[in-house]
Amino acid sequence: MKKSNSSICLEASLQAYFFDELRRINQKRQEPLPDLSIYYSSLVMDRFSLSNQYFEKQEDGRVREKTLGIKLLKSEGLSESEKRRELRDIGDTALFLCGYFSNSINEKIIDINYYCEIGRTAYRKLDSYQESFYDYKGFFQHFSKQFHELTNMMSLLQSDCNLNEEQFLLFAKDVS
């Protein structure tokens, strides 16, 4: 009987799996990022494991990708609580898109630098409306500076998982 190289991964939750894997990748870096940044990134990855969080419904009921640049512009006219929610969603979506789905961006007209800048800008703006995250003042300002490193780690994790975007979306659709 031939032995399989595949293994079963047992974790308490998908978020715990993402945290452990991102932390493993982070520990191999010359200058590891703080665990709180890894933790927040794992929360983002867990959230977007459900496709309804990644996409938005149009008025006609069709589903499409979020238009992050337009959402960022429109966020200026929102109340403070709505702005906080919207900026976090924009930043989180850009982080996930530039990290986990970075290969799919290469097929778009707009390059990855555009989406990275949208994400960093959203997090910087969010910092002025949400002063702390788990008692860490200036967390989102600091997080925006780590955006590139975090997306690289997510991309490495995606490669390690041997999942492509279509498999992930099929899995996410089944879960929702």
Rank of each mutant, 00 (worst) to 15 (best):
L87F: 08
E80M: 10
K66F: 01
Y115W: 14
A122H: 08
L169C: 05
N103T: 14
F101K: 08
F171A: 14
S132G: 06
R85A: 14
E117V: 02
S128H: 11
L87N: 02
Y134R: 13
T121W: 03
G99A: 02
D92K: 04
C98A: 06
D60Q: 10
G99E: 00
Q167G: 07
A94W: 05
I109K: 12
Q141H: 11
F143C: 07
R84M: 08
L169P: 02
H148I: 12
Y123A: 04
V63Y: 07
R64D: 09
S81H: 09
L150E: 02
S102W: 10
N106F: 11
E165W: 07
L170H: 12
M154I: 01
D89S: 12
L150V: 06
I109F: 13
F147W: 08
F143A: 06
T93M: 03
N103G: 13
R124T: 04
T67H: 14
T151D: 04
T67N: 15
N164C: 12
S104Y: 05
F101S: 07
M153K: 09
D160A: 11
F139L: 02
I112N: 01
K83V: 07
K108Y: 09
T151Q: 06
R62H: 13
L97M: 13
L95Y: 05
L73V: 11
R84A: 08
T67E: 15
I110F: 08
E65T: 12
E80V: 15
Y136A: 13
E80A: 15
E82C: 09
L157P: 06
D160Q: 15
E86A: 12
S144F: 02
G77E: 14
I110H: 06
S144E: 00
S155K: 08
T151P: 03
